[in-house]
Design a protein around this nucleic acid. Structure first.
Lengths: 146, 146
DNA sequence: CCTTGACCTTACAACGGTGGGAAGGTTTAT
DNA sequence: ATAAACCTTCCCACCGTTGTAAGGTCAAGG
């Protein structure tokens, strides 16, 4: 299997397959006499594993751990679960920050007239010159946990 | 005002202040005879504007637009509002993706025994060998909109 | 006056992932 | 035989931030 076919079969671009190989995320695959990479079914399987892990937001480093666990017959599922929960916490942290941003911004935008006049509470907040009576300070991001 | 003092006053590292200057996000500030950057109150004000915008997740390009609007006395607040809403949509998109990941992962992790045994639905899903009866396919990410 | 330490300057590299492209070799189909 | 579609390696770009190295400057104290 060519790298092009492997890319189609796995959903990972050829560029990225080479990159993953170069950083050691996947072991070096076989080569033809002409130097072309030759992917076995096992290689494709690993690539699809990676594609799926990537779609769940795992970092390359986390994927490296997961791949090692996958290959290890004597792994403990608790180890896998720990990696998963660590990632869930990362996701929660990111989600929380984004929601706080969204909340603040929404609040500011709602108070903006949005007309031809220059007066704007959004810029007022950014510049630190917002009327604190008109709009509650947005730095007090509410404990919104979704 | 030194760059160090400016950094403390604005909450932006000296490194980043130089970077923002280098890419033209802020105009070149004055210099002392010895070549040290000298920040005016106005400069600090702009830096604090940037720090606040950054904390709301605006990209450098968006900040550039916002700064231009801020400096423009004849701006229309609708223009500012448009930038804000565009960013809110970006945030929503990111949040949605992260929540979908989180949801899938949580679901998988809940079904993992997390003991000393190797059997693990998380790896099963990633490898594409999960029992479809045991665990609903996680690729059908639910329409969770928070 | 001189040293020391804390600051400043520029310039370069690195990170994580991903994409783009150049320059050259190979395979496949016409 | 030739053209198109591959493949190879190599370097560069993005974004935002940090680190580091080599050198200049300022303020304090001996």
């Amino acid at each position: 299997m060519n790298i092009g076919e492997a890319a189609k079969a796995s959903g990972i671009s050829g560029k990225m397959i080479r990159y993953y190989e170069s950083i050691g995320l996947i072991p070096s695959v076989g080569r033809t006499e002409a130097g072309y990479r030759s992917f076995s079914d096992k290689d494709i399987h690993a690539l699809r594993f990676i594609a799926r892990a990537r779609s769940l937001g795992f970092s390359v480093e986390q994927m490296s751990n997961l791949l090692a666990l996958w290959r290890d017959d004597k792994r403990a599922s608790s180890d896998v679960k720990a990696v998963a929960y660590a990632h869930i916490e990362e996701l929660d942290s990111k989600i929380g920050k984004l929601i706080a941003m969204r909340q603040t911004l929404q609040h500011l935008a709602e108070h903006c007239q949005g007309d031809h006049r220059p007066s704007c509470p959004i810029l007022g907040d950014l510049a630190g010159t917002a009327d604190p009576g008109e709009i509650a300070s947005s730095s007090a991001h509410p404990p919104l946990t979704c």
